[in-house]
């Protein structure tokens, strides 16, 4: 059991995370939050790259910093920015990382073959990685995270920059390897979460806003999500009044999905809320603050 106990992290005067408490057992956990919320900060603390300003992170009761290499031995980590040596082939690079993970050379060679097969890169195992696409590089990243058969697998924004086909492949891979492991991945792509996460953790205002399953968070906005069709020229005024979740052109009109807490109009259709709806509603203040759209009168 990986436990985060009242952890805060400050970078100088800037507070990145404040009093975060979480527990991770076996299963797939998703850290879902917009950019800059503190996901990567938390993940880096779990990977012992940065240290909490206060609080501690423990694995089976022992502080992970004090555990040192014993903790990192059971850790597999794919960073947000997966760096690699461009002139290495995946085999060469994975052999080097196996050396860093203190895996014996012969054992490593065997494992690398298996992993490259698993991620679908066996055909290009000796090709230089500078010729690889983004998806292929990311697959090498997943392979290296699994080199040491980790008990804790941490993936930071693993599907960022991947096309839909690669994202599906990735999700299936995670599902396959996540048995008897703690898998923690961070994302702001809601569709990734819906497919594979057992539990989601939402971070807002530098703290844990929600921790639980997808159904429960969606129920929080049950009954207030509607869809309606309207003319294009009525849309700006409508947006001023209600939180628009999505907009789509249909049959010469605009089909808008939105949240309304008041009594609905007759022409509106009540719909079941999705995780994306909940995400937008929860982070609507942050989205409005970041919005580039000019305010219309």
């Amino acid at each position: 059991m990986l436990v985060v106990n009242n952890v805060s992290k400050n970078f100088g005067k800037f507070c990145a995370l404040n009093d975060v408490t979480l527990e991770f057992g076996n299963g797939v956990y998703c850290l879902l939050a917009p950019n800059g919320a503190g996901k990567t900060t938390l993940i880096k603390m779990l990977a012992t790259l940065i240290f909490p300003s206060s609080g501690e992170i423990c694995y089976n009761g022992t502080n992970i910093v004090k555990m040192g290499e014993n903790y990192r031995d059971i850790l597999g980590y794919l960073p947000q920015e997966f760096g690699y040596y461009r002139n290495n082939s995946p085999k060469q690079y994975l052999l080097y990382l196996a050396a860093l993970k203190l895996i014996e050379k012969e054992k490593a060679k065997k494992k690398i073959e298996e992993l490259l097969e698993l991620v679908g890169l066996i055909e290009v195992s000796d090709k230089k990685m500078r010729k690889f696409s983004g998806g292929m590089i990311q697959r090498v990243g997943v392979a290296q995270a699994l080199l040491n058969d980790p008990k804790i697998l941490i993936l930071d924004e693993p599907t960022a920059g991947l096309d839909p086909k690669e994202r599906v492949r990735f999700r299936n891979l995670i599902t396959e390897v996540s048995r008897d492991k703690t898998v923690i991945f961070s994302t702001h792509i809601v569709s990734d979460v819906e497919s594979i996460a057992n539990q989601i953790i939402m971070i807002k205002d530098k703290s844990v806003y929600y921790r639980g399953d997808i159904e429960t968070i969606c129920k929080k906005i049950d009954g207030v999500v509607y869809e309606a069709e309207m003319e294009f020229d009525t849309l700006p005024a409508f947006r001023q009044q209600y939180l628009s979740l999505s907009e789509k052109q249909e049959n010469g009109k605009m089909r808008v999905r939105f949240i309304c807490g008041e009594a609905p109009d007759e022409s509106w259709t009540k719909v079941s809320p999705s995780l994306e709806d909940a995400f937008i509603e929860i982070y609507s203040d942050a989205i409005a603050a970041d919005s580039d759209l000019p305010k219309e009168q």
Partner: peptide
Amino acid sequence: FEFENKTQALAYSTKRGRKL
């Protein structure tokens, strides 16, 4: 080297870690 090649997050989170 690791910082120049952006591999620091990977290299220093392995078992060898910062002892590298």
